[in-house]
């Protein structure tokens, strides 16, 4: 095992231990992220009332499948690192991390991954329950779930890096989290959290395909709901790899420039 992997393994196991301490909070946090489920109910109601019981080819059951899948994928894409960095930079608690010969990013990243693993079994139980209640149907092809896993890992890492970069703006601003909230709105809209991307005006769709958002949230959800192909998954993964490269560079640049501005107040 390389020294880096050894470090990451220890960081991960420590963060996993920490997240199991917070398991009750994680469940409450999951339940608070119910926007997809609310949108599911709204669209199911609209489809039931529509002529033929469908809107643009989506029945109530299709909407249930799509929005439950977005909820599931969205849970795996949850990132809170901007809040942590904002606090650490402004309160000076970043200082002890800077004294160690390892980029503090890895501690945050391992913490997020560990939290996903603690979250996963609870998600499975909840999504099964909601699927049964709402009459959702999911793909049974294992290759679909392998593709979803790949897109989620890429999408999560891309989101983690852009949120990390936003959090680092705390080196310059009083509060970087306001930027994060604006970006979340774009992510939610173009990712398909409010409605499938196909429901948006064409010009919005034309813009969205150049962003990472549809490929990290809407595409995996459509795959699970049986509304996207493995070929589309491959194309989406390529786009995400491109964005990954972009955000690796952006994060590194903001980090290096921002450190010169660090005031190390308090601690």
């Amino acid at each position: 095992m390389t020294p880096f992997l050894r470090k990451f393994r220890i960081l991960f196991s420590t963060q996993f231990a920490l997240m199991t301490e917070y398991r009750a909070e994680i469940v409450i946090w999951m339940l608070s992220g119910t926007l997809s489920l609310i949108m599911m109910l709204v669209w199911m109601g609209q489809a039931a009332a529509a002529p033929g019981g469908q809107i643009r080819g989506f029945s109530a059951s299709d909407f249930a499948s799509y929005f439950l899948a977005t909820w599931f994928v969205g849970q795996l894409l949850v990132v809170w690192v901007a809040w942590e960095l904002d606090f650490e930079v402004r309160q000076g608690t970043l200082s002890p991390k800077l004294l160690r010969p390892l980029d503090p990013m890895w501690g945050h990243y391992s913490g997020h991954v560990a939290e996903k693993i603690v979250r996963f079994p609870i998600m499975l139980v909840l999504v099964s329950l909601f699927a049964w209640l709402a009459g959702a149907r999911f793909s049974l092809d294992w290759r679909v779930y392998a593709a979803v896993l790949g897109l989620v890992v890429l999408g999560f890492t891309v989101r983690f890096l852009w949120e990390y970069s936003l959090g680092l703006l705390a080196f310059w601003t009083e509060s970087s989290t306001s930027f994060q909230e604006v970006v979340w709105l774009v992510y939610a809209a173009l990712g398909g959290l409010f409605a499938p991307l196909a429901f948006y005006p064409q010009w919005v769709q034309n813009i969205a395909v150049w962003t990472p958002f549809p490929y990290m949230l809407g595409l995996p959800a459509n795959l699970i709901a049986g509304k996207a192909t493995l070929e589309q998954a491959g194309q989406g993964a390529l786009v995400l790899v491109g964005w990954l490269a972009v955000f690796i560079l952006v994060r590194l640049m903001v980090w290096r420039v921002g450190l010169k501005k660090y005031g190390a107040v308090g601690a």
Binding site: I10, T14, A17, Y22, P101, L102
Partner: peptide, 23 residues
Amino acid sequence: MGQKQQLIWDLPALDSFLVNQAI
């Protein structure tokens, strides 16, 4: 600096020591 620096607040100190050993 002060008493709240390196240690992970909600875990035993030994966990923080293991992290430092690895890092």
